[in-house]
């Protein structure tokens, strides 16, 4: 089936390697088996499911690595609770400060799109700006937040 081939190709491109065929099969079964399955665009749904699967696998791998790292590092003792909470508080403060520097429109765009899940077109209309402004606001805000997180790590 053509969709199946597309899915395998996508999974290969997403780094599934030898597992691509099996994963495509799994995705296929899971999506097909859903009672509230896709009606509009089944292919987009399959792609989305496959992409989500790969994202989850990546996260699982990263978590396992982080655990191994902590295990092999003899000095990686549990941080005292107080230190952790101070760090979390500081981080929240830094994120808040960054949002202030970005300006209220970029913050609003980021929140509406990323947290409320509003369509970019919709947000552009709400704020009376062009779609490309919303796109660039989103990129700039994300980039700045990513840089901040890297720095705090």
């Amino acid at each position: 089936m053509a969709n199946r081939d597309k899915l395998v190709r996508f999974l290969l491109a997403r780094g599934a390697g030898d597992a691509a065929e099996d994963l495509a099969h799994d995705v296929w079964l899971k999506v097909a088996g859903r009672a509230d399955g896709p009606i509009g665009n089944p292919l987009a749904y399959l792609y989305r499911a496959a992409d989500t699967l790969m994202i989850d696998r990546y996260r699982a791998r990263r978590q396992a690595e982080a655990r191994d790292q902590a295990w092999s590092d003899r000095h990686a003792q549990e941080q005292p609770a107080a230190d952790r909470s101070v760090a979390a508080r500081q981080e929240a403060g830094e994120v808040a400060a960054l949002l202030t520097t970005l300006g209220s429109r970029r913050e609003a765009v980021f929140r509406r799109v990323r947290i409320d899940g509003a369509a970019q077109r919709e947000v552009a209309a709400e704020l009376g700006v062009s779609l490309s402004t919303v796109e660039s606001d989103l990129r700039i805000a994300s980039r700045a937040l990513a840089d901040l997180k890297e720095r705090l790590r």
Binding site: A92, V95, L99, F110, L145, A146
Partner: peptide
């Protein structure tokens, strides 16, 4: 970081 912002 979306989770971070959502939490603020």
């Amino acid at each position: 970081f979306t989770a971070d912002v959502a939490a603020l």
